[in-house]
Simulated scan of single mutants.
Amino acid sequence: MTINKWVRWLLCAALIGAGVVAWLSPNYEEAQAATDRQTVDCMVKQLTQDDKRNIAQFADTNDFDSLWRVYDRVFPDCTVRGDQRDRKNELVTSAWRVLSTDREFVLLREAHAAHAAPGR
């Protein structure tokens, strides 16, 4: 077999391989979204009651650096894929949004705001 035939065979194999990969991964974005939801849910569930109290306090004083430090502690335990590290800010923001809708957390924020209100 000549070198040209080997090159053609390798090229054909590469094209077939790329086609198979494209065929098998049409739902890549759905899979990525599912693992991102899993990571966000994990980050919210990993927070302790003290973490939630601290986040409520930091959120009310707009101390977002301290708020992110709380998430920095739980993020490594919850990441599923390596590319999530590149999107950490997005995932932490999503976790913050989910936590912000949690009834228990809303009560913590209200209690902290009432305690920190002037005249108290």
Rank of each mutant, 00 (worst) to 15 (best):
L24H: 10
L24M: 09
L24R: 12
S25L: 11
S25V: 11
S25E: 13
P26V: 06
P26G: 02
P26W: 00
P26L: 02
P26H: 00
P26I: 00
P26R: 07
N27Y: 09
N27D: 15
Y28L: 10
Y28K: 13
E29G: 08
E29Y: 05
E29T: 02
E29C: 02
E29K: 01
E29F: 03
E30W: 00
E30D: 07
A31R: 15
A31H: 12
A31Q: 14
A31F: 10
Q32G: 08
Q32F: 07
Q32Y: 02
Q32C: 10
Q32L: 15
Q32W: 09
A33I: 09
A33P: 07
A33S: 13
A33M: 13
A33T: 15
A34S: 14
A34E: 12
A34N: 12
T35Y: 09
T35Q: 15
T35D: 13
T35H: 10
D36T: 02
D36R: 10
D36Y: 03
D36C: 01
R37H: 13
R37K: 14
Q38T: 10
Q38D: 03
Q38C: 06
Q38M: 09
Q38K: 14
T39P: 08
T39L: 14
T39Q: 07
V40L: 03
V40G: 01
V40M: 07
V40W: 03
V40Q: 00
V40A: 02
V40F: 00
V40P: 01
D41M: 13
D41C: 05
D41I: 07
D41F: 08
C42T: 07
C42P: 01
C42K: 03
C42S: 02
C42M: 08
C42D: 03
M43D: 03
M43T: 06
M43I: 04
M43A: 10
M43N: 08
V44M: 06
V44Q: 08
V44S: 07
K45V: 08
K45S: 10
K45E: 14
K45F: 04
Q46W: 11
Q46H: 12
Q46Y: 12
L47G: 02
L47Y: 01
L47N: 06
T48H: 11
T48S: 15
T48Y: 11
T48A: 10
Q49T: 12
Q49H: 13
D50L: 12
D50P: 00
D50R: 09
D50N: 15
D51F: 01
D51V: 06
K52P: 00
K52D: 04
K52Y: 05
R53P: 00
R53H: 07
R53N: 13
R53V: 04
R53M: 10
R53T: 06
R53E: 02
R53D: 02
N54C: 02
N54Q: 14
N54P: 04
N54E: 09
N54D: 11
I55C: 05
I55K: 06
I55V: 05
I55W: 06
I55R: 01
I55L: 04
A56L: 07
A56S: 12
Q57F: 07
Q57C: 05
Q57V: 03
Q57I: 03
F58S: 01
F58K: 08
F58Q: 04
F58R: 06
F58T: 00
A59K: 09
A59P: 01
A59R: 08
A59I: 06
D60T: 10
D60L: 15
D60A: 15
